[in-house]
Design a protein around this nucleic acid. Structure first.
Length: 103
DNA sequence: GTTGTGACTACCA
DNA sequence: ATGGTAGCCACAA
């Protein structure tokens, strides 16, 4: 039996990303045990409340970019948080070296 | 049951 | 590098 839902596992994996590191949607899905569900990870993050404590800002797409409209409020907030955590950015893109995240 | 949507990804020109 | 396309799959109507 599996009372646990995908959504809860995804939340747990996102929460496990250490400060100063980032993970991709695909990595999150894979780590959660649901490869191929990258889109759903994005969907879940889009539905998080504003006051969540989940480090959703540490999730970027496979190119290392922030997957949000550049002009949006969320985009600016994610960029600011990544910088404040010491992530090196090239515009809206994360330097590829900070991908080494392992659970 | 079918259809449309999306904070994705890999592949190809 | 850049842009388009096809595959992907949970979810809501």
């Amino acid at each position: 039996m599996s009372a646990i839902k995908i959504q809860e596992i995804v939340w747990q994996v996102v929460a496990s990303i250490p400060v100063g590191k980032v993970a991709t949607y695909g990595q999150i899905a894979r780590q959660a045990g649901y490869p191929g569900h990258a889109r759903y990870v994005g969907t879940l993050l889009s539905q998080l409340p504003e006051d969540t404590h989940l480090p959703w800002h540490r999730v970027v797409n496979a190119r290392g970019e922030i997957s949000l409209p550049v002009k949006s409020h969320s985009f600016n907030r994610q960029l600011a948080r990544l910088r404040s955590e010491g992530i090196e950015m090239k515009g809206s893109r994360v330097s590829l070296q900070q991908y080494g995240w392992k659970p």
